[in-house]
Design a protein around this nucleic acid. Structure first.
Lengths: 226, 226
DNA sequence: CGCCTGCGTCAAGGATGCGTCAAGATCAGC
DNA sequence: GCTGATCTTGACGCATCCTTGACGCAGGCG
């Protein structure tokens, strides 16, 4: 669902947060110091960050400064410092929220939900629309339009199309398609791909027997050609 | 600069906030209860709201619900309730931050700056009223008009309709609907959606058996089609 | 030339999700 | 404490979707 990067030097706290957050369906990245945190944020940009102020190698405020500017990610500061100047400094440095230890897990989860909720519209505001001569795919609104009318896609059809459209012009391997749409255990069920690609072609291609947009790369995978 | 609406029943606190906020260059509106607060928000849409939970005429959570949906304004809750359930409820109801009394003025000001900072780009004043050929939804006034007469909606029906209308033309997943209307713990109760969408259709659609405005996307969610 | 692998097509079963209805539980107002 | 409205919960029929298998066809290779 959503990726959360937790930065703290207390292993017990890291563990507690990892368990609680993964149980709620979040993907969790952990970092023990600022350097690894910044590296992790570069590699897998998170949707939200939880940052402790007291880190071994740098101050948490500098971590915030390190991502602010190039990453529009909400930051929740988690700190043992109760004093007001620390809070003001962290908030003015770019933090979105400040929670003092010890904290209630339910409250933190609620604040995470609030932060993600208000960040959602900005992330979706840039509606990624893919236009071809035959049809239009609106990933944000989750709809496909052809000849001015909506095309009804089943959830699986939509999911498959989504993966292909997200990599325009590039080859997507059967393994990757099966894994993203059906899950890791279906990597060998290439049958599914044949059936559902055929259904997508029937609904989208002008001439389904000679595909123009959903191209087969024999033995390798499929490609969406815009 | 920025307009802030403060809702609290304590005259001393209102005065203190008015002085401090105007000194920082904010324009300040004051309200002593929920009714006047909602009226003030309709007349002069604020850029930020500070809401106390204990109001004489209604709960602060209801004030948040009254503006959420038609006004994208950050809300900071200011409350004497320290208990976690109250915080979670307020945050899930749409609040962006929760500060407990007694509070430090500098911290509150910093939280105000943080809330305004992230809200700045999306200062989109969306149209509070949506018109279709069959009915009219007024998000600001919380009214639905059909054939010139008011349609009676229950609170839950209204809440559901509100979420759908706020994303016109876009698919809203069942997860998102359940989370916003019933709360994070009801994400799997798809029964509720079926029941309440049916009730909305019965009250709004010209032909409830063949929906025109409240469209089902099987397996994915629902869509409001203006 | 024949075999084999991989792809496209089709159809049928079983499973799932949706709409509908109604009754019990809960809440609010008097 | 009662009454009506509202919310929750369960059951049922029906449509749709997913899965699975079989078949034909084309291209590569021995």
């Amino acid at each position: 669902m959503n990726r959360i990067l937790v930065v703290d030097d207390d292993p017990a706290l890291l563990r507690a947060l990892r368990i609680n957050l993964t149980a709620r369906g979040y993907t969790v990245d952990l970092a023990r110091d600022g350097t690894t945190a910044l590296a992790a944020a570069t590699k897998h940009p998170p949707d939200l960050m939880i940052v402790d102020l007291g880190l071994p190698d740098m101050d948490g405020v500098d971590v915030i400064g390190g991502v602010r500017g190039w990453l529009q990610v909400p930051v929740i500061v988690l700190s043992a410092r109760h004093l007001e100047p620390a809070k003001v400094a962290a908030l003015d440095a770019g933090a979105d929220d400040y929670v003092t230890k010890p904290f209630g897990m339910d409250e933190l989860l609620a604040r995470i939900r609030a932060a993600l909720r208000r960040a959602a519209p900005s992330a979706v505001a840039e509606t990624p629309v893919t236009v071809t001569e035959a049809f239009t795919v609106d990933l944000g609104a989750r709809r496909v339009i052809r000849d001015g009318a909506d095309v009804r896609l089943t959830p699986t059809e939509w999911h498959l199309l989504e993966v292909l459209v997200r990599h325009p012009g590039r080859l997507v391997s059967q393994r990757q398609l099966l894994q993203e749409v059906w899950g890791p255990r279906y990597e060998s069920e290439t049958n599914y791909l044949r059936v559902y690609v055929a259904q997508l072609r029937a609904k989208l291609e002008p001439d389904p027997s000679t595909p123009r947009y959903l191209i087969t790369e024999p033995g390798m995978g499929y490609r969406f050609e815009p």
